[in-house]
Design a protein around this nucleic acid. Sequence first.
DNA 1: AAAATTATTTAAGTTTGTCTAAATAATAAT
DNA 2: ATTATTATTTAGACAAACTTAAATAATTTT
Lengths: 219, 219
Amino acid sequence: MNLSVAEENYIKAIYKLQEGEQAVTTNALAYELETKPASVTDMAKKLKEKKLISYEKYQGITLSPEGRKTALQVVRRHRLWECFLVDKLSFSWEEVHELAEELEHVRSEKLISRLSEFLGNPVIDPHGDPIPDANGRMAKPRPQTSLDQANARRLVVTAVSDQSSALLAFLNAKSIKLGTQLEIIAHYEFDNSIEIKVKHQPAITISEQVAKNIMVRPL
Amino acid sequence: MNLSVAEENYIKAIYKLQEGEQAVTTNALAYELETKPASVTDMAKKLKEKKLISYEKYQGITLSPEGRKTALQVVRRHRLWECFLVDKLSFSWEEVHELAEELEHVRSEKLISRLSEFLGNPVIDPHGDPIPDANGRMAKPRPQTSLDQANARRLVVTAVSDQSSALLAFLNAKSIKLGTQLEIIAHYEFDNSIEIKVKHQPAITISEQVAKNIMVRPL
DNA sequence: AAAATTATTTAAGTTTGTCTAAATAATAAT
DNA sequence: ATTATTATTTAGACAAACTTAAATAATTTT
Ligand SMILES: [Mn+2]
Ligand SMILES: [Mn+2]
Ligand SMILES: [Mn+2]
Ligand SMILES: [Mn+2]
């Protein structure tokens, strides 16, 4: 199946929004792809025609098995390029998403398998997300919660769920990255802000909004 | 100036065909880009509008200074990716052109300067073509002739002018690559074929057509 | 249950980059 | 100097991926 860049972006976005089983909504997809609902309806018809999704008017969208396979390939390419940019070209993790968004569309099995090998067949990308292997299988994500719901005191940062460069820049400034160990000092009920401490750094207070997007697991 | 992939491909093709000063013909460009003359005329109008080329009806196309600058950037990206594929991912030189044709369109100054640095700021690509630097300057190509016109006996292969994978595969099979040293054994006037010998290999006879596309300089 | 709101789809139009077929210009042959 | 050939442009259409505005369906509020 030969997909356009636009089609690949749709498939990946549907995969991302699907999370489990729920059908993806026209509006949600339009928002995710920064396009208009009318465009999504158009594309939905096309992708259904190509048997990549199941779609009935007003019923939302879900990936077909082939669609899921396609999505996993695109995700694999995206995350491998992110690894390349960070590990080999010394980009910082908040810069790489945009570039990977383009690189992911160069479709070549051979290129990707060589790239993966060159990188040492990594299994997680710079944001802590698992990288599907050539068959679409990926490491089951280890149990993690958002920082605002963690109950343990000592935690490790495992991922960042919002990958806007605004958030990533903030975390960078505070020296918080994947694998950073931190300790919860206090919860402030008033605004649900949280005081945390990273070793060798002054304690800082972060808003609920930030905490919701930092994924952690107990140390 | 924000160019589409198609526009970049046109600009690069015009650059390639221009060679010196002669204006590029509508048909030549259509052939090079595997499209139709009518499409070229359409695009010529658009590129003229954007001041990347000069173009008058029936008079052919030449790059403007801005057009040349753009072309050199695309060529730089193309050749750096080719280096990456060969040097880091162990592709062979005949496989990389196609992939670089796509990778070259990821537009990011930072990406390209980091990539160049990662590769050790190479100045020639795997086919022996010079790589423009960030300012569009490139090493003056060393004097070279095609193999069919060489007068010296002992020669080094410096480039391959036709980059079809057919030719490159042939050269690969005969273990001829950049830097290969060879010796001319005989010219056969009948069909202008040439017998050559590469060290540690049996002598082979190559057709005029092949010889025309192998660039060499005296050892 | 009707009314109001929100979500989704349809209709119609735009842009980009293509194509084929027909018209016109430039060049070569007689 | 005509005529024939070749090169180039124009005209009209099409597919992909968008958009806005209007119509319709689904959901929520009252
Ligand atoms: Mn993308
Ligand atoms: Mn990522
Ligand atoms: Mn290209
Ligand atoms: Mn090359």
